[in-house]
């Protein structure tokens, strides 16, 4: 369920963070669902457990997951901040892609306004 790209430029720890957040936002993982243990995930992906643990710590720090000692890690109640951050970072990626493709900032700004008008 959680997959990463070892050839990617994005660090493994960041990929894990994003992937798990994405699964929660898209509803694949629901509140209080258990997520794989650090050990299980490290083995499944073949990556250093310290790296997986670091991603989990960061997810926990941002209240995206919570852990119960001896029982594992679980999905927290999804909060607006998480969704907002996720959507905005997705937006940033799209904007960057568009800028690289040569679309100007002005064009993009106009586009945002147009989207609003069509609503």
């Amino acid at each position: 369920m959680i997959s990463i790209d070892l050839q990617s430029r994005v660090p493994i720890y960041e990929q894990l963070y994003k992937k798990i957040t994405e699964l929660i936002i898209k509803g694949v993982l629901a509140e209080n669902d258990q997520i794989p243990s650090v050990r299980a995930l490290a083995k499944e992906l073949g990556v250093n457990p310290n790296t997986v643990a670091k991603a989990y710590q960061e997810l926990e720090r941002n209240n995206i997951i919570y852990s119960l000692s001896g029982r594992g890690s679980f999905v927290s109640k999804i909060n607006d901040g998480t969704i907002r951050n996720y959507i905005l970072s997705d937006f940033d990626d799209s904007v960057n892609g568009a800028l690289k493709a040569g679309i100007t900032r002005e064009e993009l700004k106009r586009r945002i306004d147009e989207v609003k008008e069509n609503d």
């Binding site: 490290a42 083995k43 073949g46 250093n48 457990p49 310290n50």
Partner: peptide
């Protein structure tokens, strides 16, 4: 690798 991971944890 998995053996190492177990010992690390």
């Amino acid at each position: 690798k998995n053996m190492l991971f177990d010992s690390i944890l």
